[in-house]
């Protein structure tokens, strides 16, 4: 694994922004997840509640106690197996994706309607979707945030997978050049030997888009109104965004 994945900021940008979806729900409406072993509770989890007193209790007892809520039972050995198999992947992002896909698959198989708890960031979802048929096999995205968080990030995609994310080192550029989005994008393209697409937007707008029910539509409107700047302006990318935003593809 390379040392170029800044997980902390990646998590902050792509995960924390969508954590608020269920935060306002009361504890009583949230699902309960139980790891069981031989008919007994090995572990119990529900966000905002401490259910550790249930460890060791019979499965039937917890089922009865939470019968008015959605309760999901999973064998402890299955959960242990997921954690172990996730080590076959190098990047933490891939490991988390693997765990989520296993959990999502389990819920679907058991007809549990809890997809809303497993949402991914709209940008990551799109990058790893059919978009990769229209985008280069390797490319980068330069994200510049204004406003409350003045930060630059570069996201690298190689062979349809996210392979890197960090704050780029722009010290080789002059102070004026660092302010010029086109110059930065050109520099990064030459540094990584891949085409790079630059985006500039206010950080608050980024958060608003992520928590919007139609994030691509919002993105499209912000591009049209100039609140999101692209450098360079690539029609192929705009077409992809529009197809998601207005056609739901």
């Amino acid at each position: 694994m390379e040392l170029n994945f800044d997980w902390k900021n990646f998590h902050s940008l792509f995960f924390q922004s969508i954590e608020t979806k269920h935060a306002a729900d009361s504890a009583q409406s949230k699902p309960v997840f139980v790891l069981k072993d031989n008919g007994f509770v090995s572990f119990a989890f529900s966000e905002g509640e401490n259910l550790l007193d249930w460890v060791g209790a019979p499965e039937d007892e917890i089922r009865e106690n939470f019968k008015h809520r959605e309760i999901v039972f999973l064998n402890k050995s299955t959960a242990d197996g997921w954690m172990l198999k996730s080590t076959n992947h190098d990047l933490y992002y891939d490991q988390v994706k693997f765990l989520k896909s296993q959990a999502f698959g389990f819920l679907k198989k058991n007809k549990k309607n809890l997809e809303s708890y497993f949402l991914r960031h709209f940008l990551l979802e799109s990058i790893e979707s059919w978009w990769n048929k229209f985008l280069p096999s390797s490319y980068g995205m330069f994200l510049r945030f204004d406003g409350e968080q003045n930060k630059d990030y570069v996201l690298i995609v190689q062979k349809d997978k996210i392979s890197g994310f960090n704050e780029p080192d722009l010290t080789a550029l002059g102070v004026d050049q660092r302010k010029d989005l086109a110059a930065v994008v050109k520099y990064l393209s030459e540094k990584y030997f891949i085409p790079v697409q630059g985006f500039v937007l206010d950080y608050q707008k980024w958060k608003d888009i992520a928590s919007s029910p139609e994030p691509w539509k919002k993105t499209a409107f912000l591009i049209r109104s100039g609140q999101i700047k692209l450098a360079p302006f690539r029609w192929r990318l705009v077409f992809l965004i529009a197809s998601r935003a207005f056609l739901g593809l």
Binding site: E19, A23, F45, G48, N50, M83, Y117
Partner: peptide, 19 residues
């Protein structure tokens, strides 16, 4: 904290202060 963190990661849930 392992199982707690597993579910927090899966569900984008909040941390457990008491634990």
């Amino acid at each position: 904290y392992s199982y707690t963190y597993l579910f927090q990661t899966l569900l984008n849930a909040r941390g457990n202060l008491k634990l």
